[in-house]
């Protein structure tokens, strides 16, 4: 069994009138079953309102199932006595860095989590050092978070989560408010944590480019998993993705468009290098043909 497991998960947002009678029920998650392996980098895609964020909030007990079960490392999120253990295991990072930073200086902010759970002082500093190093922010430890760029703030927020020594980090659109450089910084940091520290990553995003290095891509629609596979498998299904209001990376789109126009290219091209190599092959073959025609 994986580090995250959901079985037949249902979650309803229930609206009540003044007398507490149920007025409206909105099913955000609909019979979702999922198993995420320890150490995997999993990306979740889906349009606004598809249930991604609701699902993310199930992963550390911010929301609890209406029906079905979620286990984090074999711990049922509905078991009250385990909730703090579960929150130590899965850390969350949200969209707006300004809502997540509370310390006056960077190192204080990173130490806030472990301090709250009563970690001894020496150990807190050790964790602060390690976490800042892991996100490449050691040089800024004495600075005010106000003076940082969006990408740097978001890395501090990630360091704050890392200081809790989680096994899993859930990031809900961490780059939506960042400039291109900030986006690159954050994604690079998350990939490194996954590869070097072995942290399981669940990344929710609307930027298709950020997904190409994931081990697994899950597409959600109306609270269900509708596609599940490697980035290459998922991004080969261009038309299907568009039906779910999604997109493919620009590189993939160009390759797809060219293929539709008759250029012999493989399906699901993900990176610039792949596209260039494939196109150069096509150009080489054309050159040969033309040379033969010329003779």
């Amino acid at each position: 069994m994986g580090i995250i497991k959901a079985a037949n998960l249902i979650f309803d947002y229930i609206k009540r009138d003044e007398e507490d009678n149920v007025e409206e029920v909105n099913r955000a998650i609909d019979h979702l079953s999922l198993d995420i392996k320890k150490g995997d980098f999993v990306a979740i895609l889906g349009h606004n309102g598809s249930g991604k964020s609701t699902f993310a909030k199930q992963l550390n007990g911010l929301l609890l199932p209406t029906e079905g079960t979620v286990w984090i490392s074999d711990m049922n999120t509905q078991d009250d006595s385990l909730i703090w253990e579960i929150r130590k295991k899965t850390g969350m990072v949200f969209q707006n860095p300004d809502n997540q930073i509370i310390g006056n200086i960077v190192e204080e902010d990173v130490g806030f989590g472990p301090e709250n759970i009563g970690v001894p002082t020496d150990e807190i500093w050790k964790r602060v050092d390690e976490s800042l190093k892991a996100v490449g922010m050691t040089a800024y430890r004495k600075q005010s978070p106000n003076k940082l760029s969006g990408g740097q703030k978001q890395r501090v927020a990630i360091a704050g989560v890392m200081a809790m020594r989680p096994q899993c980090i859930v990031l809900d659109e961490p780059t939506a408010m960042l400039d291109p450089n900030g986006r690159r910084e954050v994604i690079r940091t998350v990939r490194e944590l996954n590869q070097k520290e072995g942290v399981t990553v669940v990344l929710i995003t609307h930027y298709m480019e950020e997904v190409i290095h994931a081990d697994r891509v899950i597409v959600m629609d109306e609270g269900k998993v509708v596609m599940d596979g490697t980035p290459r498998e998922i991004f080969s299904r261009v038309e299907e993705l568009k039906q779910y209001r999604l997109d493919v990376p620009q590189v993939t789109e160009l390759a797809y468009e060219l293929k539709q126009a008759g250029v012999p290219l493989p399906d699901g091209v993900l990176t610039r290098e792949e596209l260039i190599d494939a196109l150069m092959n096509v150009f080489e073959k054309k050159r040969l043909e033309w040379r033969q025609d010329g003779n």
Binding site: D179, P180, P249, V251, R272, L275, I276, L279, F283
Partner: peptide, 19 residues
Amino acid sequence: GLAAPQITYIVQDLRSRGI
């Protein structure tokens, strides 16, 4: 801290490979 659109990079790569 900015970038060009991805397509610009593809075009530059092709140019550097002699296209």
